[in-house]
Simulated scan of single mutants.
Amino acid sequence: MNLYAFGKALVKTALTPLYRFEVIGAEKFPKEGGILLCSNHIHALDPPVVGMTAPRTVHFMAKEELFKLPVLGGILPKVNAFPVKRGMSDREAMRTALKVLKSGEVVGLFPEGTRSTDGVLKKGLSGAGFFALRGEADVMPCAIIGPYKMFRKVKVVYGDPIQMAPFRERKASADEVTEVIMASIQDILNEYSKNK
């Protein structure tokens, strides 16, 4: 068992007794090819929860500060996370993400850029659209529906993959693609938040 699989099993063992996870739509996740996995962001546990429920290995972009923490900083690179500087154009992170996508793997990111304190989906950053267009990947929208309260249900819902070829063919902008991604996440939230 590699470290990623071990970490995934460890997270599942630690969190499953605390929250009632319901995973919906994981069967829609493409089994191969580059995928940009985009989710809303409501809690610090979102990255491990998405990683735990996604059927494929996910390479997460994580804020640079986390890599400087004593224990976590040593673990993150071993579970395929890579650092990104917030608030500026980070060329190294961009190159890493595009390389992962073009090699047919999955990059996970939270397009809002930071956690939503009220659970309302915020405007997405154009980087999501940039990676989707330039990474030769399709997009997998995901919505996490909380709140994270002990022994309460937390839903992780995967939507229908968004095919990027039509957007590339007509040279759509990164902003437009980001808006499409965020609208897809919002649609999932609208549909599945009704019946918690």
Rank of each mutant, 00 (worst) to 15 (best):
171 K>C: 09
6 F>L: 15
130 F>L: 15
20 R>I: 11
185 I>F: 05
4 Y>W: 09
179 E>I: 05
180 V>P: 07
15 L>T: 10
136 E>H: 10
99 K>G: 10
170 R>C: 13
89 S>E: 14
83 P>Y: 05
32 E>A: 13
160 D>R: 13
67 F>A: 06
141 P>L: 11
76 L>F: 08
41 H>C: 12
41 H>V: 14
158 Y>R: 03
15 L>R: 03
38 C>Q: 04
76 L>G: 08
44 A>M: 13
158 Y>A: 05
180 V>Y: 05
63 K>S: 06
120 V>L: 13
32 E>N: 10
153 K>H: 02
47 P>A: 07
20 R>K: 15
34 G>S: 11
70 P>W: 10
69 L>Y: 12
67 F>M: 09
117 T>S: 15
86 R>Q: 12
102 K>C: 09
154 V>G: 08
64 E>A: 14
148 Y>G: 00
8 K>S: 06
58 V>N: 09
72 L>W: 08
87 G>A: 08
191 E>H: 03
46 D>F: 01
157 V>S: 08
149 K>G: 06
42 I>Q: 04
72 L>F: 13
178 T>C: 08
40 N>H: 00
141 P>H: 11
36 L>T: 09
38 C>E: 02
74 G>R: 15
146 G>S: 10
136 E>W: 00
64 E>P: 03
40 N>R: 01
185 I>P: 07
97 A>G: 12
95 R>D: 02
172 A>I: 08
30 P>I: 01
31 K>E: 15
49 V>H: 07
83 P>S: 09
40 N>W: 06
188 I>S: 00
52 M>C: 10
97 A>H: 04
4 Y>F: 14
170 R>T: 12
60 F>A: 01
17 P>T: 08
182 M>I: 14
34 G>R: 09
125 L>S: 10
185 I>Y: 05
182 M>L: 01
24 I>W: 02
172 A>H: 06
81 A>Y: 00
160 D>V: 12
51 G>T: 00
174 A>K: 14
159 G>V: 06
156 V>I: 15
163 Q>Y: 13
53 T>M: 05
53 T>A: 14
74 G>E: 12
154 V>C: 12
16 T>L: 05
190 N>K: 14
181 I>N: 02
134 R>C: 05
196 K>Y: 12
123 K>E: 13
39 S>R: 02
141 P>E: 11
146 G>M: 00
106 V>N: 03
175 D>G: 03
148 Y>I: 09
138 D>H: 04
139 V>C: 03
24 I>D: 04
59 H>L: 09
70 P>S: 00
84 V>C: 03
